[in-house]
């Protein structure tokens, strides 16, 4: 069972964003381990819950970029570019129904 990484209202395990956020965590985890949860949670907490309730692709892309900014000092510029492509593609797929929600 997945434990939600965000404890705030509007983004629990049943939130629309949760499966996508967990995919970000999983991908990043393969590069930086446990710190991926810290990075992603920190960025989710920065977003207000109005955003979570009004979830759209543009907002998720913003979250993606915020995660990348935090991850770059850990994975370096080379891997960061690759990660950016992967997370963006993951986000687009999610909103286009390419990933089962």
């Amino acid at each position: 069972m997945n434990v939600c990484i965000h404890q705030g209202p509007g983004m629990g395990a049943d939130s629309d964003l949760h499966p996508l956020v967990m995919r970000y965590v999983d991908r990043l985890s393969g590069l930086v381990g446990f710190l991926s949860r810290f990075i992603v949670q920190k960025q989710c907490q920065c977003l207000n819950c109005g955003f979570c309730q009004d979830l759209n692709e543009e907002a998720a892309m913003k979250l993606c970029k915020a995660i990348l900014i935090e991850a770059q000092p850990l994975v370096g510029p080379l891997k960061s570019m690759e990660l950016e492509t992967e997370l963006m593609s993951m986000t687009r797929d999610y909103f286009n129904g390419g990933i089962a929600k």
Binding site: S29, G30, L31, V32, G33, F34, L35, F38, L74, V75, G76, K79
Partner: peptide, 21 residues
């Protein structure tokens, strides 16, 4: 709470980092 400067975190971080670096 997150143990950011603990050896466990560094250990876990390095194991993953070494797989690509």
């Amino acid at each position: 709470e997150w143990g950011l400067a603990s050896f466990d975190t560094l250990n876990d971080f390095l194991k993953n980092h070494l797989t690509f670096s």
